[in-house]
Design a protein around this nucleic acid. Structure first.
Ligand SMILES: [Mn+2]
Ligand SMILES: [Mn+2]
Ligand SMILES: [Zn+2]
Ligand SMILES: [Zn+2]
Lengths: 155, 155
DNA sequence: CCTTAGCTGATAATGACTATCACAAAATAC
DNA sequence: GTATTTTGTGATAGTCATTATCAGCTAAGG
């Protein structure tokens, strides 16, 4: 709870600094994002969770809030295979987007917090004269559960 | 032209083996994909190019053909920031998807054919017990042109 | 021929997202 | 204080990429 509170304060601070009001709707949206920090929720999913806390919020407002939070780099907008935008909290303000492991069988998404791309980026900048700002890396494969299950089925 | 022809033959072969007919619509779609090998075309863009070769093809047919080609791993379906599906030819049947450099200023997409992720994959498989099948890696930043332009503007 | 399965094109439907607009709340001016 | 502008909200209509539907076409086999 303590970590959540301090994250909450930091985010509110950032909104404030950027000249945005701290409306109840925005506070609730941030609250949901913090509570589901590990998930990768779509706008619709966030909307439903916020509505369960306070009926009467509009879907458009959730989209607008997510847009603001994305601009301020508080969250990152990601799209995996299904083409639906998902929002990933960027607490501890990581310099670069972390990576993901997408299971092709069950659809689960796991996080990889280590960056590991530093050397590769240097290579890219040198060989392609491309200035790297950020990256998106997703591995497709089988998660622990699904690869175990596959083995027992086959064995 | 020779390389194009042989690729064409291989793709037709794969379609045939999988039990699909080699209709004129499918041939033209493959032709466009081969001609624009370096590009990352959307379904709509492919549709227009095919239609310019032979009026009277339907958009739905292009979508259906792209779906088949994706299933057969002849092309890969990718989505960058705008959420629109783009199709990337997988000739020389690369084992893993190649990488991309997306310019945040002009939107240009450049290809990176070296894999470079082999070591990282081993690390992922070991640390996360995740079986890696493929990956999607895009670097976001400034392309050669845009970073040069930026420098002269500032200087 | 006749039949069947695969394929096509037009078009309707879906669903994620965006724009619009009248109204409310807050900040600022007077 | 009240007036006025700015910011934010919710409902809802619109957009646009993609998918589903369906009647008609085509090729293959008897
Ligand atoms: Mn994540
Ligand atoms: Mn490519
Ligand atoms: Zn799984
Ligand atoms: Zn550029």
């Amino acid at each position: 709870m303590k970590k959540l509170d301090s994250s909450f304060k930091i985010i509110k601070q950032k909104l404030h600094e950027a000249g945005f009001k701290l409306t109840p709707q925005r506070e609730l949206t941030v609250e949901v994002l913090l509570e589901k920090e590990k998930d990768h929720l779509s706008a619709e999913e966030i909307y439903l969770l916020v509505k369960s806390k306070n009926t009467g919020i509009g879907l458009a407002t959730v989209y607008r809030t997510l847009e603001i939070l994305t601009e301020l780099q508080i969250i990152n907008k990601l799209t995996f295979q299904d083409g639906i935008a998902r929002y990933d909290l960027n607490m501890n303000s990581e310099k670069h987007q972390h990576h993901h492991l997408l299971c092709l069988k069950c659809g689960n998404i796991e996080e990889v917090k280590q960056d590991m791309l530093f050397e590769i980026e240097k290579e890219i900048e040198r060989d392609y004269q491309f200035v790297v700002r950020d990256h998106r890396l997703t591995f497709h494969g089988l998660c622990r559960n699904c690869s175990n299950r596959q083995e027992t089925e086959e064995g």
